[in-house]
Design a protein around this nucleic acid. Structure first.
Lengths: 336, 336
DNA sequence: CCATTTTCTGGGAGCGCTCACAGTCTCTGG
DNA sequence: CCAGAGACTGTGAGCGCTCCCAGAAAATGG
């Protein structure tokens, strides 16, 4: 027992001594095992098992300048996202896709401004090699800070105001909205309302833009705002019914809001889809569990997550930025 | 421009040079600023701002053996938890409580066995100083691995089989169940059924134990198992109605399952609470949004999170383990 | 006034790893 | 039989920080 003292966590040196080789050989074994003789390889593996050696990530990262981790930063002030089943898919998808590349995903929440600062410091201190940004609202100082450090970033959804600066993966919100409104019109509806998402989110502005693409300027009384929650959908629907009692269809920019809108329509004595047709967006679980089942727009979140990871990996290894827009599809069910 | 080259990220040395002091002084400023003259302090701060210096966490951790981060490990094979509003409260609470101590919380998901291995390696490599364990099922190799590395651990909920080994914070499930069943009996119900959670979770076994505490061995036909999902609650209720059509009350071990059970009871033509009284558990949002509103058992998750963080912090700084059991309260609404 | 204490500073050592380089040893083919 | 090309190994340097210690400078007390 000359070198291996009691409480200390074993180092490469300990492993090397036990295996009768040098640090360098142990390192080679750990990093792929090339140019290592079978004997040495076996001896090192045995020594690793015996000592219970685990690499010291800090020492490794200090020299490699890499941590093999990326952060998934959630900067939604509310916890809206946790209730969104699509979010869980996105998170799982990213975790999975990164794991395949040997990278660990860690999620940090940065709801408050103070959180954002703390997380910014944490991230720039070198804990991660890159960042996946989710639901970052316009004008957040976090993006600027990360950018100034040269940290690779990929956003989920179009990062308003930063389209030319950071990579992102987004569903084609605008086209999805166009598809839905076109479909509603093709079914003979003429007074088509819209309940939008928050106007500081891409899903808010782009889906509204798609609506206008098809209908032109339309009647401003047919436009109401929501915030993606079920309650806000009901409230916006009430408003719409009040302002435009003759409306015969409504495009609701999220399935959850659509549920609220349907409840409000029912309360007003409207039948769906006979009196008012309802179109949703997301094709989340809420779409099929609603009555009637929602006609909606599907976004492929599994695809979004794999693309995000691909882009981030590219950015980490070779730099550069790019954007990917994924198609959206109309899913016809019973509500329209 | 002798030292500060272009692309390189600034080091303490750069800051020291610019401020006209030594590395040691910069380090002192960064770590509290004691024994530093006002002049030097100002100069260093100025240099830090000018260079945009951020500490290299790997270099620091390599010597301090600390990372000032802790992991929140989610090892639920399903994504059940993401739909649980209480989970969001727990996560936010822990993040907040840790932030107050200058520690960053990162969440990692370890659903599959492979994930668990990867996360185990990641954690033991030194990325974090401690671990908050959520919904760890009995017999997971993760606990053993973390324990063998001497990593401080605090579990949320009683860690079955590891009660003497790792710290934990739990609500008093057993007493909560007792309160509910006692209440149901006090309202005149005599055939009281139970829909349990998974029997490999503390919430599953302890709430059932509380039920038996009050009712003795009871009729085995009155016991059905669920898995905390709404659907499983409905299925278990159907089963119960089939086996014991005369039951006049049911204690459902989660609010979400209670919603399912209510739906099943309705389908069977039962009125709630007149024909069958229903008691839930959790006092989640689901409890108040249900019709009728659920009589349930409240657990204070904010308190759970602060206690978990306190215990973990103690464990990190001074070692040792302990357990905290928090009281649960009966909340009477309309379903019983 | 000098002897102490207290404040403040610089620099060496070393945390545990990777990487580049200089070797050594074996196996080819001419 | 020897030159050259592999295969394999050990070692030094250094990543960027903290910690400790020695020493200088300033404040204190008798």
């Amino acid at each position: 027992m000359s070198t291996s003292s009691a409480g200390r966590r074993p180092t490469m040196e300990d492993v090397a001594d036990m295996a009768g080789v040098s640090r360098g050989t142990v390192s080679r074994v750990l990093n792929g095992g090339h140019y290592v003789s079978p004997d040495a390889l076996a001896a090192v593996h045995r020594a690793i098992r015996k000592t219970g050696y685990v690499v010291n990530q800090h020492a490794r990262s200090l020299v490699t300048q890499r941590s093999d981790s990326v952060a998934f930063i959630l900067s939604d002030p509310q916890d809206r996202l946790f209730e969104d089943p699509n979010f869980a898919i996105l998170l799982k998808g990213c975790t999975q896709a990164l794991a395949e590349r040997g990278i660990t995903l860690v999620l940090t929440i940065a709801g408050t401004l103070e959180d954002r600062k703390r997380v910014g410091r944490w991230v720039t201190a070198g804990h991660v090699d890159g960042v996946l940004l989710v639901s970052e609202h316009a004008g957040s100082p976090l993006i600027d800070e990360l950018r100034s450090r040269g940290l690779p970033i990929v956003a989920a959804g179009r990062p308003i105001g930063y389209e030319r600066d950071i990579s992102y993966v987004a569903a084609d919100d605008r086209d999805g909205a166009r598809q839905m409104v076109t479909y509603l019109r093709s079914r003979g509806h003429r007074r088509i309302g819209i309940i939008t998402g928050p106007i500081d989110t891409p899903g808010g502005v782009d889906r509204l833009a798609g609506y206008h693409d098809v209908l032109g300027e339309a009647d401003p009384r047919l436009v109401a705002n929501g915030d993606y929650t079920q309650d806000s959908g009901a409230r916006a629907m009430d408003e719409l019914l009040h302002r435009a009692p003759d409306l015969d269809a409504v495009f609701v920019c999220s399935d959850l809001m659509a549920r609220g809108a349907i409840a409000a329509l029912r309360r007003a004595g409207k039948r769906i889809p006979e009196d008012v047709a309802v179109g949703g967006f997301d094709d989340s679980k809420a779409a099929v569990s609603a009555t009637p089942q929602l006609t909606t727009i599907r976004q492929d979140f599994v695809r979004v997550s794999t693309e995000m990871v691909r882009l981030l990996h590219d950015a980490i290894t070779s730099g550069g930025r790019s954007a990917v827009i994924l198609p959206t599809d109309l899913v016809i069910r019973d509500s329209a």
